[in-house]
Computed example of a mutant assay.
Amino acid sequence: MLILLAFILIFHITSAALLFIATIDSAWWVGDGLYTDIWDRCFNVTNCTALNDSFPDYSSIQAIQATMVLSTILCCVAFFVFILQLFRLKQGERFVLTSLLQFLSCLCVMIAASIYTDRREEIHKGNNLGLFKVEYGEYGYSYILAWVAFAFTFLSGIMYLILRKRK
């Protein structure tokens, strides 16, 4: 049982780390000398512009930012709730609250990545600064990590739902 508990803790910490990296790092869309994420756009690594209301489809960007931050917060809260439930629950009870928080985190990251997938062309089109064209490029590793974090938080939520506190 101790090995299973250690595996679940490592899995949860990995999920949180993936969410932090996907939320913070500048690699949601990568092109020639261009790195863009949900916070700013960088051209040639030195010329960075924060995304603000002057960019097209800024409301979608705000929704992505909010849901990614919320998913990271929910994942961290779920970890602390799990630690508390580990010592407070009676033997044989399930970690339902922790599971619920992980599923909510999973839902938030899925919403953020889905909005970005759907609205990517509108977000990058019509760059009014004239610094770079974003038609050419590909999804970066932060975007991929967001989808991996979605799978990890979903599996973690299932594990917490099934897990019972045993001796």
Rank of each mutant, 00 (worst) to 15 (best):
F79N: 05
A6K: 08
G31V: 09
T153D: 10
E138D: 15
Y139T: 13
V45N: 15
A151Y: 01
Y35I: 07
K125P: 04
F79Q: 00
I21M: 09
V96D: 11
I73E: 02
F80N: 02
T36G: 09
S26I: 14
L131E: 12
D57F: 01
S15A: 15
L4M: 06
A149L: 03
M68Y: 13
F154I: 06
P56W: 03
D40G: 06
C106P: 00
N128I: 15
H12Q: 13
T117P: 00
D53I: 05
I158A: 14
T36Y: 06
I61N: 07
V69G: 10
A78L: 06
T23G: 07
N128V: 14
K133R: 10
T72Y: 04
G31M: 03
I8E: 12
N128C: 09
L51E: 07
F150A: 15
A50K: 01
F55L: 06
F103R: 08
C48H: 06
R120E: 12
K90R: 13
E93W: 05
K165H: 05
M1G: 12
T153R: 00
L34H: 01
G130E: 09
T72H: 02
S60D: 10
A66C: 05
G126P: 05
W39I: 09
Q65Y: 01
I73P: 03
L97A: 14
T14M: 09
G126C: 06
S15H: 06
R119C: 00
L145Y: 11
C106M: 12
W39V: 07
I8V: 13
N44G: 01
V77Y: 02
L18Q: 10
T36P: 03
S99G: 13
R166D: 04
A50R: 09
A112D: 03
L86A: 04
V81T: 13
S60A: 15
W29H: 10
S71I: 04
L129T: 12
I64K: 02
K90F: 00
C42F: 03
E93P: 01
T98R: 00
T46A: 04
L107S: 10
I38A: 12
I61E: 08
A6G: 03
K165T: 07
L100V: 15
T49K: 09
R119L: 00
R164C: 05
S99H: 04
L5D: 14
L4Y: 09
Y143L: 02
A113E: 03
Y160P: 05
L155V: 06
Y116L: 08
T72N: 10
S105L: 03
R166G: 07
S60R: 08
A151P: 00
S99K: 02
I24Y: 11
Y58K: 04
I83R: 02
M68A: 12
I61A: 08
F87M: 07
S54Q: 11
V45I: 11
